[in-house]
C-alpha cells in the first residue's frame, strides 16, 4: 500500500508519496526548483547542488540538495529564500564559467540570476553532472563509463581498451548530456566566452521577477527539466 506524507514547500501544503524526493515532489506540483544533474527515475547523486533548499526543523534551517532529500511527514521546505537564491546564483556562476559553451548551462545561469561572471572562463567540455555515467550504469547496464580520478583530476572515462568493448550503443549518454544535446549558437572561441542569454526565451527577464511556479518555460526544454522528461 502506498503511504503518503504531508509536506510544506514554499508555503504550499502538498501531499507526496513516501520515498520520493523533495525535488520530484516540487516538480510534480509545478514548483520550479532549478536543477541540472537530476533525471527522473535515475538514482540522484546531488552533484550540481543547484537544487539546494532550506529545510526548516525545530526552528533551525539546514541547506541541503532537494534531489537527495526524501520527503518526511511535516517537513517544511523553502526553495526561494534570499540566502538560497544567492548561493544558487553563485553555483550557477561557477558552472557557466567552467562551460560557457552549453546552452543548457547558459540558460540555467540566467535563470538563477547570474548577470556577470567574475571568474575567468574555462571553456571545458564537461561539468561532471554524471548524467551519462548514471544512464550508462542504470538504464543501459553497460558500465562503460565512470568517474575516474578525484578532485580536480576527476573526469568521465571508460575502462582501458576500446570503448566499444563495453558500450551498448544506446546513445543515452549523448541524449542526456547538457553539453552535447544543446550546443549553443557558438561554440564560442577561446578567449571570447561570455555570458550570453541572448536566446529568444523568457530568460532575458529579471530573475527576481521569475515565477516560482513552472510555466513550461523554454529553459526547461533546453536543459531537459524533469518536468518535460516526466511527461
Amino acid at each position: 500500500m502506498l503511504q503518503y506524507v504531508n509536506v510544506m514547500i514554499d508555503g504550499a501544503p502538498v501531499r507526496a508519496e513516501k520515498g520520493t524526493s523533495v525535488l520530484d515532489t516540487a516538480i510534480h506540483y509545478g514548483i520550479c526548483i532549478p536543477h541540472l544533474c537530476h533525471i527522473p527515475g535515475i538514482h540522484d547523486m546531488g552533484a550540481c547542488r543547484l537544487c539546494i533548499v532550506e529545510e526548516v526543523k525545530n526552528g533551525r534551517s539546514k541547506v541541503t540538495a532537494s534531489c537527495t532529500l526524501l520527503v518526511e511527514d511535516g517537513m517544511v521546505i523553502k526553495s526561494n529564500t534570499d540566502k538560497i537564491l544567492k548561493m544558487r546564483k553563485n553555483i550557477a556562476e561557477l558552472l557557466v564559467a567552467q562551460a560557457p559553451n552549453s546552452k543548457a548551462i547558459q540558460d540555467v545561469a540566467v535563470r538563477c540570476g547570474v548577470k556577470d561572471v567574475r571568474y575567468p572562463f574555462r571553456n571545458e567540455n564537461c561539468v561532471l553532472c554524471g548524467r551519462c555515467v548514471r544512464i550508462c550504469k542504470e538504464r543501459a547496464k553497460a558500465n562503460a563509463l565512470g568517474f575516474i580520478g578525484r578532485g580536480k583530476d576527476r573526469h568521465v572515462d571508460h575502462p582501458p581498451g576500446r570503448l566499444m568493448d563495453y558500450c551498448k550503443n544506446c546513445n543515452g549518454c549523448i541524449m542526456f548530456c547538457p553539453m552535447s544535446v544543446t550546443p549553443c549558437g557558438g561554440p564560442m572561441k577561446k578567449g571570447q566566452e561570455r555570458l550570453c542569454g541572448q536566446c529568444d526565451s523568457q530568460l532575458n527577464a529579471d530573475a527576481q521577477k521569475m515565477p516560482g511556479v513552472c510555466v513550461w518555460c523554454e529553459l526547461g526544454k533546453g536543459f531537459q527539466c524533469s518536468r518535460y522528461l516526466a511527461v
Partner: peptide
C-alpha cells in the same frame, strides 16, 4: 583540498 576533494559536487570541486 583541491587534491583531496572527491570532486563529486560543484561547490567543493569548482
Amino acid at each position: 583540498l583541491q587534491d583531496e576533494s572527491c570532486g563529486k559536487c560543484v561547490p567543493c570541486r569548482v
